[in-house]
Simulated assay, not measured.
Amino acid sequence: MSFDNLSRVTQERPLRMLLVNAGEADAITWAGLVQPLRLAAATLGRDVLHLETMTPAQVVLAQPGWHIALLVADEGQAPMAPELSRAVIERCRSAEYWGGVGAGVLWLATAGLMAGVRIALPWALYADTEGISERAILTPHLFELDGRHLSCCGGAASIDFSLTMIEHLFGATVQATIKESLCIERVRGHEERQRVALQARFGALQPRLSEAVTLMETNIEEPLSTDDIANLVGLSRRQLERLFKQYLGSLPSRYYLELRLQRARQLLLETNHSIVQVGLMCGFSSGSHFSTAFGALFGNTPREERQRKLSPPV
């Protein structure tokens, strides 16, 4: 689901947003999320954005009525006591949009509240998902919006998540003001992946999945077929597709295509290769296929993406 859907809650005034800090106040997961939103609240005024930050104990005593509520904790944070956890989660779920950041995502999934939902979970917590009976769909993305469910992997991605919400809730001009205040040049999109070695992300949990994605990453210019990849890692096509669906929320062919397009986007922004060259370097023999696929994923053409590199920021 597109983050554009968040804009419907801005019809309410003020927009009430709750951030529950279940971790350390100086953790980057918390600071990266709350600081842009505090600046937005100061810029817009309390009658437009009413931002509330609370501890778990405070939330239990608070009056519900939030439009957006997020449970936040750094990935190394120990879980809350069961009774407190249940009470906090119930308060968060009363919001129109709700979810978690960092370890908060895992806690919600462990509570069985993310079944069938695409979630962005810190890669370091992947090994802790084996005991979850109501399966969530783990994606490698920085953050996700699926139905009413928001999730972010935390860490530095909290900044991108916070600024993305600001843009879709209050517009690009407000976001640009906050970016300038924080000296941030580029906001990463939700579809960008956590930059971490696959072996570290999956480890011994799913070695064949890790091997399959490594094959994709090392064969960008001349893509392999799904059958070839399955044979190389010692699985049937159906087994490989099942692994990708369960852990990455995608089919191998779709994941591979997005991987190539991500690489193309990087080349367009960071190199001087022509658009045709970039397409060929990422396995697209047809310029029209490259442009169509790129537009479907990113919402603009390769030429427009290149223009971002050439144009000064507004």
Results as ranks from 00 to 15, higher is better:
residue 3 F to G: 00
residue 6 L to P: 02
residue 11 Q to Y: 03
residue 12 E to R: 15
residue 13 R to G: 02
residue 13 R to A: 02
residue 18 L to A: 15
residue 23 G to W: 04
residue 23 G to L: 02
residue 24 E to H: 13
residue 34 V to M: 10
residue 40 A to D: 15
residue 47 D to V: 00
residue 51 L to K: 11
residue 58 Q to R: 13
residue 59 V to P: 11
residue 64 P to Q: 07
residue 65 G to K: 04
residue 66 W to R: 12
residue 69 A to K: 02
residue 73 A to I: 05
residue 78 A to Y: 07
residue 84 L to C: 04
residue 86 R to S: 07
residue 87 A to K: 12
residue 87 A to P: 03
residue 92 C to S: 08
residue 95 A to M: 10
residue 102 G to R: 07
residue 103 A to K: 10
residue 104 G to Y: 06
residue 105 V to L: 02
residue 111 A to I: 06
residue 112 G to A: 06
residue 113 L to T: 00
residue 116 G to V: 07
residue 122 P to T: 10
residue 123 W to D: 03
residue 125 L to C: 02
residue 137 I to K: 07
residue 138 L to Y: 06
residue 142 L to V: 00
residue 146 D to L: 05
residue 156 A to Y: 15
residue 160 D to T: 05
residue 161 F to E: 01
residue 161 F to Q: 04
residue 161 F to H: 04
residue 162 S to H: 09
residue 163 L to Y: 04
residue 173 T to L: 09
residue 175 Q to I: 02
residue 183 C to P: 00
residue 185 E to Q: 10
residue 189 G to T: 08
residue 190 H to F: 14
residue 201 R to W: 11
residue 203 G to I: 01
residue 208 R to K: 11
residue 212 A to K: 09
residue 213 V to S: 06
residue 218 T to R: 14
residue 220 I to Y: 05
residue 221 E to G: 01
residue 227 D to E: 12
residue 234 G to A: 01
residue 234 G to V: 04
residue 236 S to C: 08
residue 237 R to W: 07
residue 239 Q to V: 03
residue 240 L to Q: 04
residue 245 K to V: 01
residue 246 Q to H: 13
residue 249 G to E: 10
residue 249 G to Y: 07
residue 254 R to Y: 12
residue 257 L to M: 10
residue 258 E to Q: 15
residue 260 R to K: 05
residue 260 R to F: 07
residue 263 R to D: 12
residue 265 R to A: 10
residue 266 Q to G: 02
residue 267 L to Y: 14
residue 272 N to P: 03
residue 275 I to R: 14
residue 277 Q to W: 02
residue 278 V to A: 09
residue 285 S to P: 00
residue 286 S to R: 10
residue 287 G to K: 09
residue 289 H to A: 13
residue 290 F to I: 09
residue 290 F to A: 05
residue 296 A to D: 08
residue 297 L to D: 09
residue 301 T to Q: 03
residue 302 P to F: 05
residue 303 R to I: 06
residue 304 E to Q: 14
residue 307 Q to I: 06
residue 313 P to C: 05
residue 314 V to W: 15
